[in-house]
Design a protein around this nucleic acid. Structure first.
Ligand SMILES: [Mn+2]
Ligand SMILES: [Mn+2]
Ligand SMILES: [Zn+2]
Ligand SMILES: [Zn+2]
Lengths: 151, 151
DNA sequence: TTCCTAAATAGGACTAATTCCTATTTATAA
DNA sequence: TTATAAATAGGAATTAGTCCTATTTAGGAA
């Protein structure tokens, strides 16, 4: 499947690109570059760090993956490019997807009426900050490993 | 005024703290640490970079200023701590405040009903991404200087 | 006013995420 | 199979931010 995605987007199918795509798709963690590199390195120990960053940029530019901003300034990556929002834990680095069509409709309607003077909206993202009351149902590799920097 | 704010918050009034507060207050740019340092350095050339970061952290912890996250991972600072949202330019680093009580009410109502399972909301931030159709009405020092990284 | 001391600063080393560089390798179109 | 433009490896460079410690200082006490 990764190979198909790459071809469809007119990208050369390289093992490195396939590996990066697989890493992101198999994570439910919104992984950082660092985690992607760790994951890939298990079966592909000689991948260049620079290559991973370059591949990520390429994939973002083609709209195959997206970026998720964090407080700490570390960039994280998301296999989902469709419109959706995020839940941010206020005392760990956990980030979960939040998809809500009803909310999107409300927001779209609101801003269809209420124009912001001097600004043309292209996208609306909600950051919902709070606390998770359930632990992660980890689907993948690094089970439960959530970087935690409670301060 | 900065001195008063510091005293009110039980902080020693040092020239460095006053300078940082003045820099942030006089900017309408949501400045990064780098810009705050540049600004202060004009009249206070020996301020330590570490001091500026430490003062910023102190001010954030006391609720005197707040942080604004950006795409690029560079942290920016905001003299406003009251609840408000931000307009992000999709091809420059421009960020403007967006305050909208009606919208806050809509969001609060929506999430009062619609609970998110496994998550307790503490704060909701909207990132409105788009294009500004008017140039900045620059109130301050670095006139018009908006870091621009159109790529 | 002067003195004392806990708190704050200067200034530079350090860290870590990301970018950049270039010699070498490789995917693919012909 | 070959040619070549595109991609990678590997490591140096950059840079926002943190950390450390000798020195200075704000502000309360005397
Ligand atoms: Mn890791
Ligand atoms: Mn600057
Ligand atoms: Zn997501
Ligand atoms: Zn603001």
């Amino acid at each position: 499947m990764p190979a198909g995605t790459l071809q469809k987007n007119g990208l050369k199918v390289t093992p490195q690109r396939v590996a990066v795509l697989e890493a992101i798709n198999s994570s439910d963690n919104h992984p950082a570059a660092d985690e992607i590199i760790d994951f890939i390195s298990r079966h592909h120990p000689n991948i260049g760090k620079g290559t991973v960053y370059r591949v990520l940029e390429t994939l973002v530019n083609r709209g195959i993956i997206s970026r998720v901003k964090t407080d700490s300034g570390i960039m994280r990556y998301d296999p989902i490019t469709a419109r959706h929002h995020h839940l941010y834990c206020s005392n760990s680095e956990r980030i979960e997807d939040y998809d809500d069509k009803e909310l999107n409709i409300i927001l779209d309607n609101y801003f269809r009426k209420k124009k912001i003077k001097g600004f043309m909206i292209e996208d609306i993202k909600l950051q919902l900050i709070g606390k998770f009351t359930e632990t992660r149902r980890s689907k993948n590799h690094k089970k439960g490993q959530i970087r935690n920097n409670l301060k």
